[in-house]
Design a protein around this nucleic acid. Structure first.
Lengths: 188, 188, 188, 188
DNA sequence: CATGAATGAGAGTTCATTCAT
DNA sequence: GATGAATGAACTCTCATTCAT
């Protein structure tokens, strides 16, 4: 039933989603939802925290593996697309609502997660620049935002079961992000 | 006053924004807004259509200039970041709300604009692949989405008057998109 | 300008008429009306009191003429249709709104007028029954309402300048009220 | 609950009636009404269409009975007063609001009903004139309006459970309409 | 005299939530 | 576990009215 709610939230936006719509999609009446959940907000909370829990399980495993910076970035991107595949709705909700939600105490964990996230990615990029794996002529914060957005916005159009598997999409994205889309360019 | 409304819509989301909040931000009472606008929706309409009007003025000029595919992409990206600079709030609103809005007849122009947009970008990318300017081993639709999202999501964090000028950001984005962030990669 | 307001009130109803509609019909802006009138209610007040003033001037002349009961009824009906002709809108407003207005102190004169009205008509009918001019087998209060309504409701469809003059309509109405519409009936 | 709404509409007028007044009269809060009805307008719609449905059931039975013109008129009047007795509020609402409502598509059936109504009454009167039952020296359209208004305006003052039963009122009205209120008049 | 802009009370309506059944 | 009915706060919007210009 959380899955149903997540789909509706993702499609219509949290605020524009009425409890009745969720109930309709779940085949019951609006009042009946309250046997299962405390509130509309608690559904959202559970959707987001479950997603972030699984995301960090994956990320932490990658970060603990002791890979080089380029390999770490690659693994994080692959992991991210797998999460998009498994939690598409949650990711879409996160993208749309997190800024406004993170102001509320109940969703403080969104801010924490975001900071941890930034530390992991930005740190890896900086490590990669120092190690000569990534270009030094780019603003690293800009690069961070570029890579981050590039990956996660995919949730807005990705549909599971489409032509490309998550791993295939990850591979193509990585190729674009790392090597660019132009032909014959080089950074000696 | 449309600027005020756009800022509030961008920050809180259209649905979560009450007319009272807009009125507060504009220094008047909620009812007073209706002397200037027919409805909350008409404010949104005017914000988005004004933005799209100016966007297409710029895009059309670029597309009519007869540039090569790579130069066209470069010019479109530069133009896009300039629009983000001038219409940051409108772009953010567009990003968040357009999917759900485009279902309504009143906002049918969003769908039209999106199709024109896709045609311009996708066409240029295909032309570039054919001309040997862009890599042929990538899915061109995936590449399109990658480039498109890469550019426009910037509106979610961009603040006018920050460290980087729009043109500087465009330059860095283009460098990443075209040549990648990795050092020493080449596509001969 | 009162005439304009009266027409709009008559057509749309007092409550459904906005000040703006009156102003539109008068060729000015809503706020400008307040140079001429204190309030929407005062327009209504002036319309109704002017009409009732003229009505009673006519009625009082009839009642003071010392006519017999049948001739008095005839004269009152003729006078009424002349008032409908001259104050069609006011009569229509009166018909629709008086019950609800008469509860307000400002419009107490409506109640007074109505009582005077009832006294004049009912008294004449009773006088006529006693004098053998009118049938005694009918409930006189019912008869009063019958005659009263019969006359005044005409304001709802009457349009000045139509086929029938007010006096012609009065003549036909009187013929129906006094002698009935059936052929060959008699009350010896 | 429709009955409650009808009473309030009848007494105060549709526009002057707030949903809060209806809710008060029904012993609930304004918002609660919307569990039972889509809108204030849909209450009005249901009240009027229910009334017209029953009215035409009665009228159609009369018209199908194959009576002579005078008997038809008598039966229609009797039927009308019975409807006033059963749907007093609805009739009063119809009288006050129908002209303005019939302009809206939703209430187009009011216009249709009115045309059917006119056809039934006017046709019967014309038939009666041709058959020598009614006077030929009167304008038949004027007569139609006279009879029509005479009957239905009664809803504005009629109170169920009063001194006169609907059938008694109908009898007196018919006597006045058919034979007049004057004594000794004849139409040979 | 008229305008344009604002006010503020109140309208119809929506919706998350509650709760007896 | 689910339903139907109700709650009450909040929302968008309307409108009579005011007033500086």
């Amino acid at each position: 039933m959380l899955g149903v709610a997540a789909d509706v939230f993702a499609e219509q936006g949290y605020n524009a989603t009425t409890v009745r719509k969720i109930a309709d999609a779940a085949g019951m009446l609006a009042g009946s939802l309250y046997y299962h959940f405390d509130s509309k907000e608690s559904m959202l909370d559970e959707i987001l925290s479950t997603f972030l829990g699984e995301l960090w399980a994956g990320y932490d495993a990658v970060l603990a593996a002791g890979l080089g910076p380029r390999e770490t970035i690659e693994a994080l991107v692959v992991e991210s697309f797998r999460e998009i595949d498994r939690h598409r709705a949650a990711v879409a909700i996160y993208q749309k609502e997190s800024r406004y939600l993170s102001a509320q105490p109940r969703f403080a964990y969104l801010t924490e997660s975001q900071q941890k996230f930034e530390k992991a990615w930005l740190g890896t990029l900086e490590r990669g620049v120092a190690a000569g794996a990534f270009r030094a002529d780019l603003d690293v914060r800009l690069t961070y935002r570029f890579v981050r957005d590039t990956v996660w916005v995919a949730a807005s159009w990705y549909r599971p079961g489409g032509l490309h598997s998550p791993d295939e999409i990850a591979r193509q994205y990585l190729s674009m992000v790392l090597d660019g889309i132009a032909l014959g360019s080089a950074h000696p």
